[in-house]
Design a protein around this nucleic acid. Structure first.
Length: 1145
RNA sequence: AGUCCCGUAGCUCAGUUGGUUAGAGCACUACACUGAUAAUGUAGGGGUCCACGGUUCAACUCCGUGCGGGACUACCA
């Protein structure tokens, strides 16, 4: 005798979680699952490295379930899925965390704490929650290989990054440029965006603003503006809150779609006539409506009210390309400047709808100028370097600081002299008397004198301030290293089109649009804890070297030692070609150690490392290469691990990891980095708010797993909504999943195990061919095969949600609620015959297949279910569902006609039960017959096949078919819009009316003839039966129910015979209850004594055998007085009857 | 500001290529059922399918414009 199927008291998924984890450990199941079957090869998955300096949240369970499920599925398909774990260790969050913990600021690094100690702290801090992460990974059942995770701070990892950077550098794709960033002249440092978001940083200040008048140049392009005007010139008006940037103006921007108008008026300061251009919407902000009526002849210079007249309108697009004269001629920027551009950032919310562009002092300005080939205004300084007109201290560059020949060539000394060396904001100067006019005011006054300004006014606006010095921030060009991603834009778009995105819209939309608007990747970060830029330059920046490996660095240092720039070699102990961790721990490529390495240039000059770090996104984007320490290792088998078949992360990574993976793979390997991708949405709290520790609405994954186990959590997250929709996480939903899906599946198994053990079913008998099994078995087998097909297709398509929902639907609706419910009697009692065996084999197959289908999403319980089924039967050698291949469906077992028949049976049963309910006749009371109208010629055969099931389910003896011709049916007719619509179009409404107007006789005639002519608007139309739907709606005098085309009537007459039978069934019910209450085993034989009572005794007499067989009673006796043990009084149709039920012998 | 996602019952979600009674589960109410029982069945209430326009014989579905929620990116002259 083999093992029994384990039986359980209750379902404790938390317990299952723990037990299965233990089993996985003991059997080393995970490592065993990393194998290939049938030569399937590898399925490459990349793990997006989490940062272990934060505590894992419930959303990580979501993202990781998506990763895990696909990997498990592919394993089941026979692929080897290696999935190396990794840790993201660099970056700002780590640094900020350490700064907070140590109570220091960025400026104090290097003074209060050495960079070395600081980085040491970062290195420790970043791994502080490693244990928690590993615990979550384990408990949630996320199978990822943690044996040798890649760590981004590892020197080997960094070495690959350097190699990649050198590849880019050598090809000319890594270059130095500048970018406009918030900069504090007082502190001499750039500010990061989070520093600008510190409270109190944005402050209202009162600045002098002005609306400057830019004089257009009259040529072919601008010709149309000079029609019907009486001034020689046309000016464009542009507002600025920073007049000090006006000398750096090199362009104007308008909105392409914005409507602009030409206005004739007067300069308020000089009183001279002017013609100006302004956005139509802002006309009245500049020219009050009331002034429109003032006669021009009445105006005198100096008048407060200035008349105006609109002369014409045009779009911004028409203005594009027009040239204008430089507003302030201090420095000549050279060719290409002073053009009107179009920019999408231009609005008509304030100002004039025309934006003054100073590429050196605004990020938008910089971008739009660059895109249009407009030069920034840059001066050459006497050290040979170039820079904006304002120096790093916030002063206008003194002429003495400029390069002599540059001054001669490009600077107007006459006009500039009065302004040079002045601070652009008075706050930057130390000893300035408080009443000193600002540069803004003086520039405005100068423009006023020249007639180049239309309005000067004080304006209060919000402006960012440096949180350290309290002084205003400038947007200022700062040096930075860039990757020339724009050179690969088209190729990246092309490659992106080959990627299978889930959802597709993220790929074509969010990601695709991002690629189209690509700008070069700014790689520089002025921080401490990260991958250093491997570039050394000489002091005058003429010579550069990019280092691409540890051995190269070691060799270069040797040269430097020879040249006398270094005393010893920090990489002295490093031996080339030895890829061991020990060898790579003999040195450190981080700051400050790399900063102390000086190299020698080819011409013999000392070289210093560029102090920047690289963007951490490069770290993670380079992960396909760096996790393999490519090309120092894995050079020959790299194609086996690149590109990835599949990755998955949150949609917030679109511009992060997804992008950097794509860029680097495109630029280095001319390939995609991943072929399939699921980007999931956020996990919100149940009210749709973002979870945050601060608000206290964050859900702790550990306690949820502890309470429910991982499976319900995983199942809920996958099936509740599509992963890319935000998930409103509600723990009661997890509870529901537990009850509905896992509870039902567990119940089904328990039911099976109970009887299989009673009958000693061990699946040792020969398999009964499906064709020989009863209809209902073939039905569930057909559905099961359909399910395998559907679920496999969904998984293949990376659609976990549909897969999970299909499984759940099968288990709860078809398997449990229909198949098992209708078949209960086949399992219990009776002979161990072919029918019973068929029932066991069928139910076993369903349960076992479900365990394999659902294993990717619910790895714990499905493993339990699988082994519970497999241990006694040994159908598979493997002891875990995760080592067994995914089921294969048999198309020949899918019988759609059978599925349709059963659908009819389910609907009819449901309708009859509804009717019983309506007339309050219990299902236990047998009824004589139902009547079913036959809607078409196939129906009768279909129904015959499922007749017995229906009759048993609803406890009715007979079915009677009613033919079409019978006149007792009341028919209803409905037009079939799908066939009529395309044919008759506009006549539909009339046809519909005509059809509904048909009488019952006409409908019958129509049915018999097969067609029916109608006349609509004088047009003869012949309707066929295809064009309408005829249903038998009612049978007068009967209890009738409808569902779509199906109609059923119930005969509710209860004859004496039926009455007695009903009472007998009542007894069976009571006896079963007593058995259960008394704690009898299902197999115990009993003796039943029933009080001899006029009302019920006839029923018992007639049905003694029936009662006995149903309740395993060896004797059912009527006695005068019931005595002895276990005497009870039960109610049979409101009559009290005494009876006793006792266990035999 | 741009790009993308979402908006269907009190809640969570389905809704195939447009076709006329818009579904399921949960919750609620009532009544049943009970050898699967931490289940189950039947019935009921509950919907301007976010709004407005358009295309069409016909729109929850397609198009446009808004509104609301969310994500990312950029920024305010």
């Amino acid at each position: 005798m083999g093992k029994r199927f384990p039986e359980y008291k209750g379902l404790d998924l938390s317990r299952v979680n723990k037990d299965i984890l233990k089993a996985w450990d003991e059997n080393d199941t995970f490592h065993k699952s990393i194998r290939e079957v049938n030569g399937k090869g590898e399925f490459v998955f990349y793990e997006g490295p989490p940062s272990a300096n934060g505590i894992p949240g419930i959303h990580h369970v979501m993202a990781r379930t998506i990763k895990d499920a696909i990997c498990r599925f592919k394993t089941q398909c026979g692929y080897e899925v290696k999935r190396k774990a990794g840790w993201d260790t660099h970056g700002l969050p780590v640094e900020l965390g350490v700064e907070k913990a140590l109570g220091i600021t960025k400026e104090e690094i290097g003074t209060k704490i050495s960079i070395e100690d600081y980085n040491k702290a970062c290195r420790t801090d970043v791994m502080k929650y490693t244990d928690l992460w590993e615990e979550l990974t384990r408990k949630m059942g996320y199978w990822v290989n943690m044996d040798h995770p890649y760590v981004t701070y590892d020197n080997r990892y960094i070495e690959t990054l350097w190699w990649l950077l050198k590849e880019l550098y050598t090809k000319g794709y890594l270059y130095q440029g500048y970018t406009i960033q918030p900069y504090s002249p007082a502190a001499g440092t750039g500010l990061s965006s989070h520093e600008l978001n510190l409270p109190g940083c944005y402050r209202d200040v009162k600045d002098t603003t002005c609306i400057a008048l830019f004089k257009l140049i009259r040529d072919k392009k601008s010709k149309f503006l000079y029609n019907n005007i009486d001034t020689p010139e046309v000016h464009m008006m542009a507002w600025t809150t920073t007049p000090w940037t006006l000398p750096s103006n090199t362009a104007l921007a308008v909105g392409k779609e914005i409507i602009y108008i030409k206005v004739r008026s007067f300069n308020p300061y000089s009183g001279n006539p002017v013609t100006v251009i302004i956005a139509k919407e802002l006309l009245n902000a500049m020219f009050p409506v009331s002034n429109a009526t003032i006669d021009f002849s009445e105006y005198k210079p100096g008048d407060k009210k200035i008349p105006f007249k609109v002369l014409g309108e045009f779009t911004g697009g028409q203005l594009e390309g027009i040239n204008y004269e430089q507003l302030i001629d201090w420095v000549n920027p050279g060719e290409g400047a002073f053009r009107v551009l179009t920019g999408d950032f231009v609005t008509t919310e304030d100002g004039t709808g025309i934006v003054h562009i100073a590429p050196t002092f605004g990020a938008d300005d910089y971008r739009v100028a660059k895109e249009n080939g407009v030069p920034p205004l840059i001066v050459k300084r006497n050290d040979g370097s170039f820079g904006p007109m304002v120096n790093k201290h916030g002063y206008m560059v003194p002429i003495s600081d400029m390069d002599e020949s540059f001054v001669k060539q490009s600077v107007n000394i006459n006009t500039y002299t009065g302004f040079e060396a002045r601070p652009v904001k008075n706050e930057y100067a130390v000893n300035l008397s408080p009443d000193t006019e600002t540069l803004d005011v003086d520039i405005a006054v100068m423009l006023k004198q020249q007639g180049k300004v239309f309005r000067i006014e004080k304006h209060v606006h919000s402006y960012p301030h440096c949180w350290r010095t309290d002084k205003p921030v400038l947007y200022y060009p700062l040096d930075a290293w860039f990757i020339r991603t724009t050179a690969f834009r088209d190729r990246m778009i092309e490659l992106n089109n080959t990627i299978n995105w889930k959802p597709q819209s993220t790929g074509t939309g969010r990601f695709g649009k991002w690629l189209e608007n690509l700008v070069d990747w700014n790689l520089s970060r002025s921080r401490y804890w990260g991958t250093p830029l491997p570039i050394w330059v000489t002091e005058e920046r003429k010579e550069e070297k990019c280092i691409g490996s540890a051995s190269e660095l070691k060799a270069e240092i040797e040269k430097s030692i020879k040249a006398g720039f270094m005393k010893n070699n920090p990489l002295g102990k490093f031996s080339e070609g030895d890829n061991s961790q020990e060898n790579y721990e003999t040195f450190d490529l981080h700051r400050p150690f790399v900063d102390d390495i000086f190299l020698v240039s080819d011409s013999g000059k000392k070289m210093f490392r560029e102090p920047d770090l690289i963007d951490v996104w490069f770290d993670s984007g380079a992960m396909p290469y760096a996790q393999a320490h490519y090309p120092f290792e894995n050079k020959d088998n790299f194609h086996e691990m690149f590109p990835a078949d599949y990755i998955a992360e949150g949609v917030d990574q679109t511009r992060g990891w997804f992008f950097t993976l794509h860029v680097i793979a495109t630029m280095i390997s001319d390939s995609v980095a991943f072929k399939n991708i699921i980007s999931n949405g956020l996990v919100l709290d149940k009210n749709g708010n973002k979870m945050s520790k601060r608000l206290g609405n964050a859900v702790d994954p550990f306690s949820s797993i502890e309470e429910y186990g991982s499976d319900p959590l995983r199942w809920y997250m996958i099936t509740n909504s599509q992963p890319w929709d935000n998930l409103k996480f509600d723990i009661s939903g997890v509870d529901e999943v537990k009850r509905k899906f896992f509870g039902t599946l567990f119940n089904t198994y328990t039911f099976f195990a109970l009887y299989a053990n009673v009958d000693n079913f061990r699946y040792t008998e020969k398999e009964i061919p499906v064709i020989e099994r009863p209809e209902i078995d073939r039905w569930i087998i057909s559905l099961l095969n359909s399910l395998v097909k559907e679920v496999g297709r969904c998984y293949e398509d990376y659609d976990l949600t549909r897969a999970g929902r299909a499984i759940q639907d099968f288990v709860t609706e078809n398997l449990s609620n229909w198949y098992v419910r209708l078949n209960r009697k086949r399992y219990w009692g009776g002979e161990y015959d072919k029918d019973k065996l068929s029932a066991y084999q069928t139910l076993f197959a369903c349960l076992e297949t479900v365990s394999r289908l659902a294993a990717p999403i619910a790895p714990f319980y499905m493993d339990r279910l699988f082994s519970d089924l497999n241990d006694p039967t040994c159908r598979h050698i493997e002891n875990s569902v995760h080592l067994v291949l995914f089921p294969i469906y048999d198309e020949s077992l899918i019988d759609k006609a059978l599925e349709e028949r059963m659908d009819i049976a389910q609907k009819v049963s449901s309708m009859i039960l509804g009717l019983r309910r309506k007339v309050s006749i219990k299902v236990r009371q047998p009824l004589a017959r139902i009547m079913v109208p036959v809607p078409d010629k196939y129906f009768r055969d279909k129904f015959e096949a499922v007749k017995d099931l229906v009759l048993a389910e609803v406890n009715v003896k007979e079915v009677e078919y009613i033919d079409d011709t019978a006149s007792i049916l009341v028919k209803k007719i409905k037009p079939n819009f799908k066939t009529l619509g395309p044919r008759y179009g506009k006549l539909m409404k009339e046809i519909s009316n005509a059809i509904s107007a048909l009488t019952s006789q006409e409908i019958v005639a129509f049915e018999n003839k097969g067609n029916h002519p109608v006349t609509i608007n004088g047009q003869q139309i012949v309707l066929t039966t295809e064009d309408v739907e005829i249903i038998s709606e009612d049978i007068p005098g009967w209890q009738v129910a409808n569902d779509g085309k199906l109609t059923v009537a119930l005969d509710i007459t209860v004859s004496e015979d039926l009455r007695y039978e009903g009472i007998a069934r009542e007894f069976v019910n009571r006896i079963q209850n007593i058995r259960k209450e008394s704690g009898f085993d299902v197999t115990d034989k009993i003796t039943v004594l029933i009080e001899d009572n006029d009302f019920v005794s006839e029923a018992v007499r007639r049905h003694t055998a029936y009662i006995g067989s149903q309740t395993l009673a060896t004797a059912v006796n009527l006695v005068k007085n019931v005595t002895g043990d276990n005497v009870r009084e039960v109610d049979i149709d409101e009559v009290a009857v005494k009876m006793s039920v006792t266990k035999n012998g």
